[in-house]
Simulated assay, not measured.
Amino acid sequence: MKILHLLTSINTGGAEKFCVDICNTQADISEHKVYLCILDDISEEQLLLKMISRNVNVISLNKRGGYSLKIIYKIYKLLSEVKPNIIHLNGRALVYTSIPILLKRIPSIYTVHTMAHKEYNKYIRSYIKLLFNGFPAIFTPVSISQSVSETVKKTYGAHFETVVYNGSSQLTTSSKSEVVAQYINTLKKDNNTLVFLYIGRISKEKNTLLLVKAFNELLDNGRNVCLCIVGYDGTLKQSYLLECKNENKYSDKVKFVGRQENIADYLVCADAFCLTSNYEGLGIAALEAFSMGIPVLSTPSGGPSDIIIPGINGYISEQITVESYIKVLNHFIEKPLRDKDKIIKLYTEKYTMEVCALQYLELYETKL
């Protein structure tokens, strides 16, 4: 079987990282031929590009700008040359490739990575709904969690029930781990300081400002904690990042360290992972935290509620407010979750990329 995965870009993000991971894993655990087509330009500086296995056939169509007849032709030509048996779509690749896929009549899987009603504007959602319902043998939406599935049913149709939980690859520390550990130690007051970690985009959707405000209050009240924020503001003005930094009252205890490639080195130093999103499909970073035995403290933002077992691998706040999240933080401070083996066991059973990749391979077979 020839499997063609399609992405718009290879910039660092949850959907992009998922796509690279599943390509690598499917190429490793099966005899199928795996292709990854990136519509946009690619460059050697892109972190995810460096992570792609040599067993994956990488293609770039060098798209620049938005939708055009030229890119439609390029995609059609690609499908004619590769002749894939199945296509796996992520993000806006669905919109760009839909016409060539229809012309070629190739069955396609589309992974819905976030709440369906938040993914696109109403016009694109109407077009996607037409594709799913008008051509059910060609386009199949797959939700990454039960929470996402509920929004898919409401947005596209109650009969779209397929769910495959996201997976992540097991992380390992790098040669920089000792340097990171030394840096984290400079944030600690003493050996009893609890280290909290956030990894991801710094944006309104991720609600990073709530996190900063919560730690301001914890530190105001003398809690022995520190917070490391690993991530970046992808906008040109970076206004939200500046807002978060300006709100931070404890620059010696709450640190913004920017985008980092070696996130395992930070996770291994953490006592808990923080997730404060307004809405979240599932959260690759949360799964990566689980892979290192780190509990996740989350707002009730959707997908995380599906994978967190309170008191075992994390806690969930009652509301998406500073006050409610502070209650969860204080609860964890009083009763930290230290059983890393139990967290890793749950992750290994349900949320590894191998588990996820095998489920998709089985799904592909049913669509052929």
Rank of each mutant, 00 (worst) to 15 (best):
V254F: 10
L131N: 03
V257G: 06
P336H: 11
K70M: 13
I71R: 00
G293H: 10
T352K: 00
N246V: 05
T186C: 08
N221E: 12
Q359F: 11
S9Y: 07
C228Y: 08
D271F: 01
K176F: 13
Q319M: 14
S203W: 05
L346P: 01
K77W: 09
R105V: 14
K345D: 12
L39Y: 07
T111D: 02
K63A: 10
G66F: 07
T151Q: 13
V268R: 14
F160W: 11
K350R: 13
T352M: 03
V82T: 04
I199L: 05
K245N: 12
D339C: 11
N185L: 08
E354W: 01
S98K: 09
P84T: 08
S143V: 06
L282A: 07
N90K: 11
S317Y: 08
I333C: 14
I229R: 07
P136T: 10
M1T: 10
T276S: 02
V20F: 02
I29P: 00
A116E: 01
F290A: 07
Y266C: 02
I308S: 06
S317F: 07
K50I: 07
K340V: 01
Y156K: 04
S80Y: 09
N133I: 10
L363M: 08
S175D: 15
E150V: 12
I29H: 00
V148S: 05
H88E: 09
S301L: 02
K206E: 02
A93R: 04
I72R: 13
K206N: 05
Y183G: 06
K204M: 09
V225W: 01
N192M: 12
N221W: 12
L47Q: 13
I316K: 04
E119Y: 12
A27Q: 06
I72T: 12
F18N: 06
K74G: 04
E217H: 14
T172L: 15
N11C: 07
L297P: 05
I263P: 00
M115A: 10
T155R: 05
M353A: 03
E44I: 14
V328K: 03
N85D: 14
R54E: 15
N262M: 10
V58I: 09
D21M: 04
G13Y: 09
K153L: 11
E150F: 13
M115Y: 12
A15F: 05
L79C: 05
H113V: 08
H159I: 13
